[in-house]
Design a protein around this nucleic acid. Structure first.
Lengths: 144, 144
DNA sequence: CATTTGCGCAACCACTGTAGTTGCGGATGC
DNA sequence: GCATCCGCAACTACAGTGGTTGCGCAAATG
């Protein structure tokens, strides 16, 4: 499959949200403003922020002067949790082909591979766990 | 994108190849035999084994009594190299949306994210690096 | 040397997941 | 009431994957 860019966009959105929130005052940050930063459509933004809302990272309010805001401090948003929120199925997937029961390898490979995949994804999450949204904000600000 | 299962199938094929090679004697293992184990088409097998051939893991010969064979010992085939061979673009991808030059975050996020992604993928490869085809064969045989 | 067997490659099709878009309903504040 | 904004569902367009067929070439067998 075309490998998804949801994770990248989600992180981008969280950064932009943290950034714009500072200047927005009481008003929420609208999906249209966020969409401008990513150069995409407000609905795409809302879809993604829907997952992040369910995961407890952001909160949105409807109505005039509505919009989004972070639901917790950037230092408490770890990237591994963001990945899990927008890509719940993981990155390494087994093949769905039916197993050939006449073949030892075909019968035995999937559980073995599953274990390998699980360990590899744990390693990936462990790496992302060390990064928070606050870290990224610092780096983006330093670069700009 | 529908996340690809090339890696899983490639590992399955390598296992099956190692397994069948033992009983095949001088003859090569044909793509049709391998296809039976994965329950797929010989052409799909050949496509994937094409990548693995270019990476130096297997070798195929045409002609009568042709087929495939491992080009090096299972203990020398590390899974991270297999992943790199069949999925050269990596698993985490940046979004392709044009950057909004009026936005600090949009301008700065991609290099920062790129660094984070690279580190995460390194962690994933480091985990896979510890597993060789020989390890998997041992596990599959123990389970069967 | 003809035949058989099997790989290599290109072309094509069907399927699927993603991003993009529109439209409508409901909430919120002026 | 009315404007603004989120939430959600439906639809479209596109891209990547896996599956399939067809043809050319290589190699072994008789």
């Amino acid at each position: 499959m075309p490998t998804s860019s949801r994770f990248a966009v989600a992180v981008h959105l969280l950064c932009a949200l943290a950034f714009l929130e500072a200047t927005a005052g009481e008003r929420g940050v609208t999906s249209a403003e966020l969409a401008k930063s990513v150069n995409t459509n407000p609905v795409v933004v809302r879809r993604l922020l829907g997952s992040l809302t369910r995961a407890g990272f952001v909160a949105g309010r409807g109505g005039r002067s509505g919009g989004y805001g972070l639901a917790r401090s950037p230092a408490k948003i770890r990237l591994d949790a963001v990945l899990a929120a927008v890509e719940p199925d993981g990155l390494l997937t087994l093949h769905a082909n039916p197993t050939n029961r006449a073949c030892t390898v075909s019968c035995g490979i999937k559980p073995v591979l599953g274990g390998v995949f699980a360990e590899a994804e744990r390693a990936l999450h462990a790496s992302l766990e060390r990064r928070t949204l606050a870290d990224l904000l610092r780096q983006v600000q330093a670069a700009g």
